[in-house]
Design a protein around this nucleic acid. Structure first.
Length: 278
DNA sequence: ACACTGCCCTGCGAGC
DNA sequence: TGCTCGCAGGGCAGTG
């Protein structure tokens, strides 16, 4: 499931190989619903002939910048893939959209579960998307003091808050569990119950977890591939997300527990991450 | 502000 | 071997 580190690797791999290319044609598959907005014919018309000036990322969105000033925002959700290929590369049955590039290569969007979406945004719309998301966890502007202050007004379970993209952008289920485990904080702790020290520890854990996952190419549990079709390596370095209920905690050997927080399966160590005080 | 449900969708593994 | 069934999950709309 592409979260911030995976999307960042897609961005980097495409920047290195596709930036500067011109989209000479757009081909749609049967599932045109992958284009969230505008209507598919307008999407095609406004994208065709445009040069890709670069690739950005905001939270879990890949941002394809066009020389028209428009931005294609791509959300991969669970199984979406954005990969550059030769035109001869076989087309899978879950392949929904192709940007044909001026050098003959193709930038393809595929998505097994059809949850992923593309949006073509004007500069104003792109700014609105940016404002709708919380801060970037790796941005230096997000200091420990500011993060702690953000928590003090929130009574929700800390894990639910970490998954809320309007609070903090880019964290999904994998890295929420990993960061809380690293920071030794129980996922159900009310956010405003964290001490400033715990908040600082959590932010540091989030950053370390995300940064190392980026350096390892992201986490490939099943589907994730970068812009060149390469899987990541971080799945070999997970501490808790991949464990089953009852498996020993890698730190203390206590059986790992499981619960559901914000509709998401959640693993934690009952000893390392003690329950919230009543 | 927050919790909860249901929806979108497919592949996979468990159980029979 | 082949079937059914439940689960997985990000975001969003709708309800309370």
């Amino acid at each position: 499931m592409p979260e911030l580190p995976e999307v960042e690797n897609v961005r980097r791999s495409l920047t290195a190989t596709v930036a500067g290319a011109t989209i000479v044609a757009v081909r749609l598959g049967a599932f045109t619903g992958c284009i969230a907005s505008p209507a598919p014919d307008e999407f095609v018309a406004r994208v065709t002939g445009r040069r890709i000036t670069g690739f950005g990322r905001r939270g879990k969105y890949v941002l394809i910048r066009l020389d028209s000033g428009d931005t294609i925002a791509v959300h991969l959700r669970m199984t979406g893939e954005l990969t550059v290929t030769s035109p001869e590369a076989p087309t899978g049955k879950h392949h929904h959209l192709t940007f044909v590039l001026d050098d003959g290569r193709e930038l393809r969007f595929s998505d097994t579960r059809k949850f992923g979406r593309l949006m073509l945004l004007t500069p104003d719309e792109a700014a609105a998307l940016d404002r709708s998301l919380g801060p970037e966890p790796l941005d230096d502007a997000l200091t420990a003091e500011r993060f702690a202050a953000m928590l003090t007004t929130r009574a929700r379970a800390i894990k639910a808050l970490l998954l809320d993209q309007t609070f903090l952008a880019g964290i999904g289920n994998i890295y929420a569990d990993e960061a809380l485990y690293a920071a030794r904080i129980h996922p159900l702790r009310p956010a405003n119950s964290l001490t400033p020290e715990e908040a600082a520890r959590l932010l540091e854990a989030i950053r370390t977890t995300l940064a190392s996952a980026i350096e390892r190419g992201g986490t490939t549990l099943r589907d994730y591939r970068d812009g060149l079709g390469r899987p990541g390596n971080n799945q070999h370095y997970l501490h808790i997300y991949h464990l089953a209920e009852g498996d020993p905690c890698p730190r203390c050997g206590t059986p790992i527990a499981r619960l559901v927080v914000a509709q998401r399966g959640t693993r934690f160590c009952p000893r390392c991450q003690p329950r919230p005080r009543p």
